[in-house]
Amino acid sequence: MNVLPLKDDSVAAKRAQFTVVPLRHPWRWAAAAIVAILLLLLLQAVVSNPNLQWPVVASYILNPIILRGLWVTVGLTLVIMFFASVIGMIVALMMLSPSKMLSLPAAGFIWWFRGTPALVQLILWYNLSLIFKDITLWLPGLGTVFSVPTNTVMTPLVAAVVALSLHEAGYMAEIIRNGLKSVNRGQTEAALCLGMKPSLLLRRIVIPQAMRVIIPPTGNETINLLKTTSLVSIIAVGDLLYSAQAIYARTFETIPLLLVATFWYLVVVSIMTVGQGYLERHYSRDEAGHDPAPGGFSRLGSILMMREKWRGAQ
């Protein structure tokens, strides 16, 4: 903070009598120079190395198999995140319930699904038929209502959705619980006093306020999940990585195709980051007041500003 009243004319006038010598930062300049040289060397290595086969990379970027894999990856991420949020919300509400019969199973759920690696759960669900041969609904009095062999239900795609949804739900439950707990008790009481039912109160008062706490970690979780879905290539679900692998298994263009997959993962993650910024702004509109505050582009904006400063410094 500036303590001096610089706007004051007399002070400004006094200052103007002197030449101001800015503090020099020689070490900062030296470090920047070293980094610049390293970056140039890296760029040269990347561009000139024939093993990276950039023309091949370019030719596969819009390959239909790759694009279909991209859609599977994005679709899986969205579907899994949806189920994980719904299950996570239920588990979070159970955790907050005063009844031990609800909160203990919920704690067990989180313990189990956060405590085991996603890959292990994926393979376990995929091999469910080794534990339960058939999936059967049996009702007292009616007998067996239906029964199907587990293998026909637990396709690779279903196994992927079930395993990763439950795994992710463990994390989402904790995130949502923290969010719900962050809302002041007085809010609930005020809403109750206005005659609101618990469901309405949750939907209109508590969740919108909890969102502010829930969204940032959920954004990170979604980005993580996008990358975690690449595990499903192990059980032959045709996601982005699996599609790239399927092509290079034939053509042996391993590195270019992995670069294609990398490119698309980065594109989707970047889009998600921008979207997260917009969501965060939407749920903190009271803090922004009426001003259209910088949202998703703020990061981009600050990078541009830094470039401007850099120019100004020269």
């Binding site: 002041n184 007085g186 809010q187 009481e189 005020a190 809403a191 006093c193 008062i205 919108p208 749920y283």
Partner: peptide, 12 residues
């Protein structure tokens, strides 16, 4: 109706 010490308006 109820009015609280800390207002408890809905901030969002």
């Amino acid at each position: 109706g109820m009015v609280f010490q800390h207002f408890n308006l809905f901030p969002h």
